[in-house]
Design a protein around this nucleic acid. Structure first.
Length: 460
RNA sequence: UCCCCAGUAGCUCAGUCGGCAGAGCAGGUGGCUGUUAACCACCGUGUCCGUGGUUCGAGUCCGCGCUGGGGAGCCA
């Protein structure tokens, strides 16, 4: 007999008769002549209830089944005599695969997220984390679906990069040199003896590579792991995370904002439509306002606000800020939060930032003072997308690199794209984990990554 | 990296003014029951994060360290 996943059984309109199920015991309750087993196989949030009668040959063994134990059960699916579930399985055979001893760390009760982080290898067996990682999987798929429908090409940009400065934070060094005995040359480490013959790092962004492919294939995106060696200790930063980076040729900042907004709306609607059961868990137990927040995202347009106007709104507001709002400085978290959570109460796209506070590759506007940058800010999380129209004019790009103290020779291939057939183009990066946090209401990035990597933490 | 808070049983937490270490859940035993985080009775459970100090006496007060959390910065 072929195994049936529990999700299919729960959804059935009529009994398929005999079934074979495999899974882990969530809990067991004994009655006088039989035992109720709640079985979960990870295919969905719900358990299926199994009735194991004392007439079973190994009933004494069945009574030893503890939370976490693994079993294979053959039985008939029948309508449940009790309330609370439509179907249940009357077991004909119970094969015990393994009994979990009472040291099993997951108990039949609520655990704190902090505790579950210490057992990250077992936490996906809990309701909340099972749901979170099913949603993560569905969202990954939805991203590809969205871009496929829009005829974008999926580009695999390198994880190891030779650019020693991609302009976005500290990088992890990649080397095959013996760290306890580094080759030296003129008082410095001799990287010509290293694997690649020069310094290499883990990527902090696929953008520069993606730009080359946008200027070849048109509309492209990358979606993969990204690394930052920043000593960030917050609930929304990780050293290894996944980033989605679309890049579009012949596209200006407005088109870029349109895509970001459409993407967020599409993905939000996707989880609401396709992960209903798992989403209900988050709406009930994690964030009571979750559905209202998400409805708000799916329905209304995002606010689009130039940086200058945002500064004016913040300066006019009666709210007392810890840090003053001054033109020419980056907004503080508290300022962003005020805009999305108090003033507008919806996602806000800030654009046209002062060029001094943004990287060299962002396109300088006609005013000569601002660049065509845009950040999408959402309530509760803050920045979820950061992007820009790219500087396509060679001379301006070169002078911006000089201002930023970058070595133009290192970027010869990047600059080539502005020498040969340069066109206006735009793109952005979306933090995948931050998006999962947004739709689930989970407040710590460590709880939406299977095995999170943060400063001083790489246990699993 | 900076600021703040916490660390007590397997888990969640209480512990008053410095004076014998506690509860619920989990686990064990027995009972009851088409049960639903089942229920009832009984039973066991400690490097009070570590270290140094103050004190007749420290879970409690002080210093240092470690770990975890919240916030800030860096950003996605």
């Amino acid at each position: 007999m072929e195994r049936t996943k529990i999700t299919a059984l729960i959804a059935a309109d009529r009994s398929p008769g005999s079934v074979l199920i495999k899974g882990w015991v969530r809990t067991r309750r004994d009655s006088k002549t039989f035992s109720f087993i709640e079985l979960n196989d990870g295919s969905c949030l719900k358990n299926i209830q199994v009735i194991a009668d004392d007439s079973l040959p190994d009933y004494e063994e069945v009574k030893k089944l503890s939370t976490g134990s693994a079993v294979v059960i053959k039985g008939k699916m029948v309508e449940s005599e009790g309330g609370g579930q439509k179907w249940e399985i009357r077991a004909d055979e119970v094969e015990i695969i393994s009994i979990a001893p009472d040291t099993y760390p997951l108990q039949k009760k609520r655990h704190t997220d902090e505790y579950l982080r210490t057992i990250a290898h077992l936490r996906p067996r809990s309701n909340k984390y099972g749901a979170a990682f099913r949603i993560r999987s569905e969202l990954s798929w939805a991203i590809h679906k969205f871009f496929k429908e829009k005829e974008f090409r999926y580009i695999h940009t390198p994880i190891i990069t030779g650019s020693d400065c991609e302009g976005a934070g500290e990088m992890f060094r990649v080397t095959s040199l013996p760290l306890d005995n580094l080759p030296r040359k003129e008082g410095k480490t001799d990287f010509s003896a290293d694997f690649f013959g020069k310094e290499a790092n883990l990527t902090v962004s696929g953008q520069l590579s993606a730009e080359m492919f946008a200027l070849s294939l048109g509309d492209v995106y990358t979606f993969g792991p990204t690394f930052r060696a920043e000593n960030s200790n917050t609930s929304r930063h990780a050293a290894e995370f996944w980033m989605l980076e679309p890049e579009m040729a012949f596209c200006d900042l407005t088109g870029n904002m349109d895509l970001g907004e459409e993407l967020i709306r599409y993905l939000t609607r996707y989880v609401l439509d396709n992960c209903t059961e798992d989403m209900e868990l988050f709406a009930r137990f994690v964030d009571k306002n979750l559905m209202a927040t998400l409805e708000n995202i799916v329905r209304g347009d995002f606010v689009r606000l130039p940086y200058t106007e945002a500064v004016e709104i913040l300066q006019k507001s009666k709210k007392k800020f810890e840090y003053p709002v001054t033109y020419g400085k980056d907004l503080q978290s508290e300022h962003e939060r005020y805009l999305t959570e108090d003033h507008f109460k919806k996602p806000v796209i800030l654009y046209n930032y002062p060029k001094e506070i943004k990287p060299f590759y962002m396109r300088v506007n006609e005013d000569g003072k601002t660049v065509a940058a845009m950040d999408v800010l959402v309530p509760g999380i803050g920045e979820i997308i950061g992007g820009s129209q790219r500087e396509e004019r060679l001379e301006i790009l070169e002078s911006r690199m000089e201002e930023g103290g970058l070595n133009k020779e290192e970027y010869w291939w990047y600059l080539d794209s502005r020498r040969y057939g340069s066109v206006p183009h735009s793109g952005f990066g979306m933090g995948f984990e931050r998006f999962i946090m947004l739709v689930t209401g989970i407040r710590n990035i460590r709880d939406v990554i299977p095995f999170p990597r943060t400063p001083n933490s790489i246990e699993f």
